[in-house]
Amino acid sequence: MSRLPLSFGCGQLHLAATLDTAPGTTGLLIVSGGNEIRSGAFSGQAQLAARIARAGFPVFRFDRRGVGDSEGENRGFRHSAKDIAAAIEAFRAITPQVTRVVAFGNCDAASALMLSGGEGLSGLVLSNPWTIDHEAGGENADAALPPAAIRARYLEKLANPREVARLLGGRVNMGKLARGLVRSVTPAAAHSDLAQEMRAGLAAFTGDVRILLATADRTAQVFEAAWDASDPRIHRCEGAGHAYVEPEHRDWLQAQILVALRS
């Protein structure tokens, strides 16, 4: 295995990429989420690419337009279909033995793959897809969460002696707590337009799909509230956070990706 830095064209722009070589005829395309560069947070995606390549599958990752080392304007995940299509073309060109490309994306990278309908791909591994139309922050952070997720959050806090001590010691914002309790028993809001668009995009895809959900992740909880929880394509990693940082969760993620590549 070797690691090759390279660039490829997306229209008139040049995008930066990295290829981890391997002899396999199925390759993995890693699509970065948010404004994350292709190495991932704390090099997580670079490490994942190396492990997958050692298992025999070439891995291609890239910076979309306006992110990291790539040229152009960053227009967000909703406008990344051209970046993904150009990356697939470049991946196939530099690895002529590859006959199948499976894409992996976490958070809004998964959403981008769904919105694009998986065009040009044989399989999709969609982790913690982002379904919130507008990101909530500050005291409104709970507004985007489904009631079940809010209840689970408060139950977790009540099981933590430190949180109970904060409550009894008057160090909890009672107004915020009251609003959260009201939200926890309020019927869930209608599904977002983004979730509906993602559902329509995925319905057009005929390849293999695996939907991975980290059960301790709020983004995954919001997605599950907007989706059919009995969907047989869903696989849950109990206790995992958004980035699968714990060794056992990281191993689980790698195993799920390898299943998709070998199918």
Rank of each mutant, 00 (worst) to 15 (best):
V222F: 13
F42I: 14
L15Q: 10
V31I: 13
N35R: 15
A50L: 13
T215S: 10
S192W: 09
R250A: 15
A178N: 02
D228Q: 08
A229C: 02
T131S: 12
S43H: 05
S7P: 00
R183G: 02
G120V: 02
R210W: 05
D133W: 14
R65M: 06
R153T: 12
D193P: 03
F62V: 03
A144M: 10
E73L: 07
R3C: 11
R183Y: 00
G9E: 13
I132W: 14
G66S: 04
H249G: 09
G118C: 05
V164R: 04
A49E: 04
A220I: 09
E224C: 11
S184D: 06
D208K: 12
V98K: 08
I37N: 11
F8N: 03
S70I: 09
L253M: 09
L212V: 15
L124I: 10
E238Q: 14
A243P: 00
G175D: 14
V259K: 08
R51Y: 07
R151G: 01
V245W: 15
L168G: 09
S39L: 13
S122Q: 15
S230C: 11
A229S: 13
D217E: 03
L48R: 12
L261E: 03
W130D: 09
I234G: 07
A46E: 09
A109S: 14
D193Y: 07
T18F: 01
R3H: 08
K157E: 06
T219K: 01
Q221M: 09
E71A: 15
A85Y: 04
R78D: 05
G120Q: 07
R183E: 09
V125D: 02
C10V: 08
R51Q: 12
L194H: 11
F62I: 05
F8Q: 10
P232H: 12
V182H: 04
I30G: 05
A109V: 04
V101C: 07
G76V: 03
L19W: 10
V98G: 05
F223R: 07
Q12C: 00
S122D: 14
R78C: 08
L213F: 03
A178R: 13
L213Q: 07
